[in-house]
């Protein structure tokens, strides 16, 4: 039985990864999860300088999901390289670093530094505002997205380059194509969906930043649809994300076109969700006589 999959140059022992921002730097979950068993760890988004994040409350629960606006709190790339990278490198798993910047130059600097440091993959978080372009999001403007990916691509020699697409666009296929044409090795989708919740007694927003990203089972059908649409548009591998709680969800994403999957909010609900998903996929393959997991990708029957 073969669970290995390829994302660009990367060969993963299985298709299960962690979604950025939901698994810390791996260490936080190491008491519960044997990190060696994961296909890849995608760590919390890193910027050049440390970011202190947004004021609390930063999350609230909604029906079958949660809203978050953490504000990209992170320790900055320097501290990451010094303390977190050596820790994860002790484990036999692939390391993918999510990066965020406010200008193309910041992305270039970050990706170059991380590429030099030998990380396996770099995931571009393009849901950040471009400060030089009046706060426009890289991820919702095709021209800007293309320019960002091309420039970063020229500077990344060894790491696999993944673009994490925003669901906040009218046609995901066009953005998937831009990513592919601009040299991204893979795409991951979806990021959270902007949402809002109000406390009717206090009339205040339930999170301090007012608007946050919705994640969890509530967004899964939207994510499956977008993975399917992206799959019809591009040849590069797709990492499916969005409300994956168990192995059934993971397989659903693969049938829609995902090569790999990432569990996010599920880690909060069940700290061993990633391991449960891997075990579940193995049992499913046995029961259904699937010798190679790659068969499932895009296996939807219409």
């Amino acid at each position: 039985m073969n669970l290995t999959i390829n994302i660009g140059k990367l060969k993963l022992k299985n298709p299960v990864m962690t979604a950025s921002g939901t698994f810390g730097y791996g260490e936080e979950y190491s008491e519960f999860v044997d990190l060696n068993k994961l296909g890849a760890i995608v760590v919390k988004g890193i910027s050049i300088k440390p970011k202190e994040g947004n004021p609390p409350p930063r999350i609230c629960e909604t029906s079958c999901g949660m809203l978050n606006s953490i504000g990209l709190q992170n320790m900055g790339v320097k501290e990451f390289l010094k303390t977190k990278l050596p820790y994860i490198r002790k484990y036999d798993t692939k390391l993918i670093v999510n990066i965020l910047g406010n200008t193309i130059q910041e992305y270039v600097k970050l990706s170059g530094t991380l590429d030099d440091a030998g990380v396996d993959g770099i995931e571009l978080n393009v849901s950040c505002p471009n400060v030089k372009k009046g706060g426009m999001l890289f991820g919702t403007d095709k021209k800007m997205l293309g320019k960002l990916i091309r420039t970063v691509r020229n500077n990344v020699k060894n790491s696999t380059l993944i673009t994490k697409l925003s669901p906040n666009v009218s046609d995901i296929r066009e953005f998937a194509k831009v990513a592919e044409e601009s040299g991204s090795d893979a795409i991951s989708l979806i990021n959270t969906i902007p949402g809002m919740a109000i406390n009717i007694k206090t009339r205040k927003p339930k999170i301090a930043n007012m608007i946050g990203g919705l994640s969890g089972p509530a967004i899964k059908p939207i994510a499956v649809r977008m993975v399917y649409e992206a799959y019809t548009a591009v040849k590069i591998p797709i990492i499916g994300i969005g409300g994956i709680m168990n192995y059934e969800d993971a397989i659903e994403f693969m049938l829609a076109g995902a090569t790999a999957v990432a569990a996010g909010t599920a880690n909060f609900v069940n700290p061993v969700a990633t391991l449960d998903i891997i075990k579940g996929i193995e049992s499913f393959m046995k029961e259904n006589n699937i010798m190679d997991l790659k068969e499932l990708t895009g296996g939807l029957r219409c």
Binding site: T22, G24, E28, P55, C60, I70, F268
Partner: peptide, 22 residues
């Protein structure tokens, strides 16, 4: 107290403001 998701320090949801930052 703080609105909490993971409980293990990963999600950074339950921030409390201290003299040394969140």
């Amino acid at each position: 107290e703080g609105n909490m998701a993971c409980g293990v320090g990963a999600c950074l949801s339950c921030a409390v403001n201290t003299k040394k930052g969140y």
